[in-house]
Each structure stands twice: as C-alpha cells, then as structure tokens.
Design a protein around this nucleic acid. Structure first.
Length: 374
RNA sequence: UCCUCAGUAGCUCAAUGGCGGAGCAACCGGCUGUUAACCGGUAGGUUGUUGGUUCGAGUCCAACCUGGGGAG
C-alpha cells in the first residue's frame, strides 16, 4: 500500500501498562529513530562545539537545525547546492528543521506579524526579512531535512485569551498553507498544536491538527516560562488527543526531569538547547542530579563527570581536569561537557525506552525523578 | 647619597578636602523548538606606617617604609 509518506513509518512497539509511556520506532529516509528520543539542537547546522564524529559517538539518532537562522546564514539555496543539510554538514542521520516559528516568540521585539506572515529583522544586521508559511516550506525543502515543522505562531507566556486564540487560529490557517505549499514527499511535515495556557484552546488545536494525515505531531508553545505543574497539565491534556499511532514531539523540552514527565504522559520526541547551552555555561548532568563544574568542590575531584556515563569525556577525563579547562577559559572543557550532556540525555531517553519495553517505566520514573528534580 | 614618581579589594585602576567604587579574579545561582562560551547575585577595605593641619583627610603637610625611574 502506498501513501504520501512512503519513506516514513512509525511503529508503536509498546505502551507502558501503568503510565502513558510509549516505546516506538520512527523510520525515516536517513534511518530509524528509537523513541522516546532526545534530539540535540544544532541551530546553525552544527551542534555547538561538537564535531560530527563526537556527535555520532553520543548515539545521536537525529539532530535539529533552524531554517530561519540557516536562511539568514549561510542561505538555504547554498545549502541546497551542497546536497541539502546532510551533504552540507556531512551528517548522514536524520535531521529535523524548525520552521522559524519559535523565532516569532524568541525574537518578539524584532518582528511584525500579519495574516500573510512575519517580518523579521536580522538580529545581526537589522535587515528585514519576510517569512510566510509558503516561504518557510520553500526554505525547509531546500535545506532538505527529513522532518520539517509547520510555520506557527508561538504566543508569549501570560498572553490573554484573545491573543492566544488569535495565535492558535492563525497557526491553523498557516498549517493549511504549509500543507498546500509542501511538494517534497521525501520530507515529513509535522503540524504543531498551539493554544497557549487555555484548556479549550489546547483541545481545539489538538483536534484540528489531528485531522491531518501527518507522520507525526508536535506540541508547541510550552516551556516558555510557566511552572512545571502547568506544563505537565497541558502535556497531559494534549498528548492523548493526538493520534495514538503517530509520534508526539514536545518542542523545546527539556531537562531529565522534563523527559520523565513528558514520557510518562505519552511524549515520544524531545529537543532542547539546554544540554549544550548549559554545558557551555558550566553545568552538567549526573545520574544523581545536575552540578556546576566551576564549583570549588570539584577542584581535586578525580572522578568522571558521571560515574555511570561512558561518553568520551567520562572515559578520558576527571572533573578536576575539566574544571581546570573552564577556569582557564579553554573551550575544550565546554566541548567535553557538551558531549557529556548530550549523551546523558540520549542515554536517559533510551534507558526510559528499555524500561517501557520491559513494562517498568513507573519504577524507572520513581527511581530517577527525585534525583533529577532537585 | 640625592632627585623624582607611585603605594586604595587577590590583580589592574577610579574617587573637587564631604557616604571609598568599577572591571577582572574568587564564591554561588540561573538558563528549556539558541540573538546566549551568556546573564545575575554574594563576599571582599585600619586607603603602606606614624604623626600633623582641618568641623571633616584616600586626597593637604612631615617623617619613615616599600617599589619604579633618574643623577652621582
């Protein structure tokens, strides 16, 4: 049987009997993704400070890039000439590009929104650029990621009902335009559920996007400043309303704690800048919770970042040495910690997957949550 | 030996004779579809020493101590 998604397929392998946790496999043109999965972020077609060989070693199964930033530099047409994102950065596993929708939120002071699309100013030179759903699709198709995202309007945290409804409804109209503009069948377009922090809008949005015959679905607009309890509420409300036989992607999340909470509620895919950004800023994940490498207590610590980790940094270097690199401003320290934090989160997602397959996710959650939430 | 310049937080330096500050370093925290190797907080002082002038001295005066430069 053929469909518009010849090159994609999702198999839901097992659902945990006590929670909503799911283990699955997402097949893409560049390989399989074992879900739940954490996806490292490489906005400018590189995961900051991490070379591809190191990235492969972390077990990364799919990485993100950002179509808005790549449109500004180096330009999607140039990337297309190099064989798309895979040829451009010489990465042979799956890639997902964000549409630029998040920049509607993160660059709020530099853009103007209309029904037609969004006018952005380049943060670096102030030059104006117009992105519409159609243009976002054109950019993302040139870049050529396996998974591309709908161009959405991510409303700010704390916005009123009227704004939230307007952003959601426009996001829905823009989704229709993205679907109509998309021509490449070798890419999967994920719709994005919005609705801010209003139950009825979230329900309406989940129902709306679920009408589409998509490979997978995303939940956007969360983790934008709300507390954990609020985020969990909206994940719990929304995830079950999305097609159960399709992967669910919680955008921009998160911490080890967030992964546990998301997986428990039926999320299959996560991405976050946190492991790499925090690594550059000196904090690292351990199986006992997060730590700050610059703290004086690590000055003479001979142990690896995490004694249960087998990443390149942990196999080769001590906390004392890596701390020294930070104190000296040596970027190698940041590179080592980026590798560690990425591998930690990917391993964490895959350990959760194993627990789901063995139908013991609840135990996995209860064992790890206290350590990762303080 | 003489002349000269300087001495303020760990470091580099601010502060009309009128509440001694900043940057860096130290210590700690934050970061969630990357405008971020960033942002924030805390601590840190007998202003070289001893006298003097003054209502009031980091600041003016004297001596001494330490260091830089110069002369012999």
């Amino acid at each position: 049987m053929t469909s518009v998604h010849d090159n994609f397929n999702y198999t839901l392998v097992h659902t945990d009997s006590k929670t909503g946790a799911r283990a699955g496999v997402l097949h893409t043109p560049h390989g399989d993704i074992l879900t739940p999965i954490f996806m490292p972020v490489g906005t400018n077609s590189t995961v900051k400070l991490v070379t591809n060989n190191n990235l492969y070693d972390t077990g990364a199964q799919i990485i993100l890039a950002n179509s808005y930033h790549l449109y500004l530099r180096a330009g999607h047409k140039l990337i297309e000439k190099f064989g798309g994102i895979h040829g451009w950065m010489n990465w042979n596993k799956p890639v997902l590009t964000d549409s630029g929708g998040f920049q509607v939120f993160s660059l709020a002071h530099l853009r103007k929104i209309s029904e037609e699309g969004v006018e952005f100013r380049d943060p670096k030179d102030g030059k104006k650029h117009f992105i519409s759903p159609e243009i976002s699709m054109e950019i993302q198709q040139s870049i050529g990621a396996d998974i591309i995202m709908a161009f959405d309007w991510c409303a700010p945290y704390g916005c009123d009902y009227k704004t939230a409804k307007e952003a959601m409804e426009r996001t829905h109209r823009w989704l229709e335009r993205c679907v109509n503009a998309k021509t490449n069948t070798n890419q999967a377009l994920f719709p994005i559920c919005q609705g801010a922090f209003f139950d009825d809008l979230r329900e309406e949005s989940a129902a709306f996007v679920s009408q589409y015959d998509a490979v997978g679905f995303a939940i956007g607009g969360l983790s934008v400043g709300e507390d954990k309890e609020t985020m969990n509420h909206f994940v719990e409300l929304t995830a079950p309303l999305l097609p159960h036989n399709k992967p669910r992607y919680l955008m921009g999340v998160g911490t080890p704690e967030d992964l546990l909470d998301g997986i428990k509620r039926g999320i299959d895919m996560f991405d976050c800048v946190l492991p790499t950004r925090n690594a550059r800023h000196g904090s690292f994940f351990t199986s006992e919770g997060k730590e700050q490498i610059k703290n004086a207590k690590f000055q003479e610590d001979p142990r690896p970042l995490d004694e249960k980790c087998d990443c390149y940094a942990c196999k080769n270097h001590s906390r004392a040495y890596i701390r020294h690199l930070y104190k000296c401003g040596e970027g190698t320290g940041q590179a080592l910690m980026s590798i560690h934090n990425i591998k930690f989160l990917i391993d964490f997602s895959q350990k959760a997957r194993q627990a789901i397959l063995e139908d013991r996710f609840e135990e996995f959650y209860n064992e790890n949550y206290p350590k990762q939430s303080c």
